[in-house]
Design a protein around this nucleic acid. Sequence first.
DNA 1: ATCTAGTCAACATCCCGTGTTGATTAGATT
DNA 2: AATCTAATCAACACGGGATGTTGACTAGAT
Lengths: 158, 158
Amino acid sequence: MRSPEALVERFREDGLKVTPQRQAVFSALHGDLTHPTAEIIWDRVRLQMPTVSRRTVYQVLNDLVSLGEVLVVAVDNGPTRFDPNVSLHDHFVCSICASVIDVDSDERSNVASHQTTLSDFPGFEVESVEVVFRGKCSSCASLPPASSKQHDTNTRQK
Amino acid sequence: MRSPEALVERFREDGLKVTPQRQAVFSALHGDLTHPTAEIIWDRVRLQMPTVSRRTVYQVLNDLVSLGEVLVVAVDNGPTRFDPNVSLHDHFVCSICASVIDVDSDERSNVASHQTTLSDFPGFEVESVEVVFRGKCSSCASLPPASSKQHDTNTRQK
DNA sequence: ATCTAGTCAACATCCCGTGTTGATTAGATT
DNA sequence: AATCTAATCAACACGGGATGTTGACTAGAT
Ligand SMILES: [Mn+2]
Ligand SMILES: [Mn+2]
Ligand SMILES: [Zn+2]
Ligand SMILES: [Zn+2]
C-alpha cells in the first residue's frame, strides 16, 4: 500500500471521493505489519472517528483490495486479514497465537524453479507464489507448554 | 490418510468406536484428491447412508484431523477443505473456479533453504512449510475471459 | 449381557461478512 | 456558491459455515 497521500491521489484518479472515513482507514493501515482483521481496523478508526460505521470500514477495505493497494492474507480459517505490504514476501503463521509475521524471502529465486515445476501442468497460468511457514513464534515457543492456549481439544457433543 | 482398514485399527487403538458412520466417512475421503469441504463429504456419505447427520460428519472429520490422519487446507476464506493426503506436497489454487490441486514438489530441498532463512528469527520453531501457487487452472485458462465467472466486482451499497 | 460412546433430530447460537432502505452528508465540479 | 451525486449512516435482516444443546435412542467393545 502506498502512502495515505498517494492513495488520495489514486482515489481521485479513479473517480472515488476522498472522504474522511477513507482517509482514516488509510492511516489506520499505513505501515501496519500485523495483518489485522477488518474488526481491528474498525476499532482503530473509531478511536479517532467514533461514529464511523462498521459497514463503511469493510467497504473501504474492499476498495483497497480491488485497487490492488492491499492484499488479503488467507492462511487460516479465521476472519479475513489484510496486508498493506504488497511487495513480494512470505508469511509465518503461529499455530498457538495465530499471529502472522512477514518473512522477507530474498531467495525468491527458488520460486522460479517452482514455476518450472508447475510447467509440467500444461495450460496452467501461475500468477503468484507464496510460502507459508507454520510453527511456534518466539513468544509462544518460550512458554511452558502446559499453560499455553492450546488448540481445541475436540470436545464431543453431549 | 491411511486406508479405511488401517483407520479402523487406529480408531480401536485410540479407544474410539468403529461405527458405520465413521467408516462411511473413511471411504468417502479415501483417495480423494479434490480437497472437499465438509458439506461435500456429507453429501457423498448420504448417498449410501441417507440418515447420517450433518453433525456427525463434521465430528468425524474433526476426529481425523485431531489424529493427524487428515489435514486442513487453508488457502482461501471459503469453507474448510480437508486433505487426506498427508504426504509432503504443495497446492495450486485457481483464482477463477477456486479448485485446489496438488503439486508434488520434488524440489523440497528448497524448503531447507527457507528454513535457514527463518533461523534469522531467533526462537521460532518452524514445523511445516507449504508453497501456495495461485493463478488459473488449465480449464479456466482456456475459457473466453468474458464468460468466465469473475470475482465480485465489489458492488457498493445502494 | 452390560456399559457407555456415538448418533440422531431438532433445534439454537455464534461469527463473519454482506445486503437493504431511506435519510442525510459532503466531495467534486461548474 | 450552487449543483450533482457518491458516500455514509443507522438499524436492520440475512446467509453460510461451524459448533453447542438436549434428551432419547442405538449399537460397539468387553
Ligand atoms: Mn505480510
Ligand atoms: Mn493436497
Ligand atoms: Zn505465537
Ligand atoms: Zn479453474
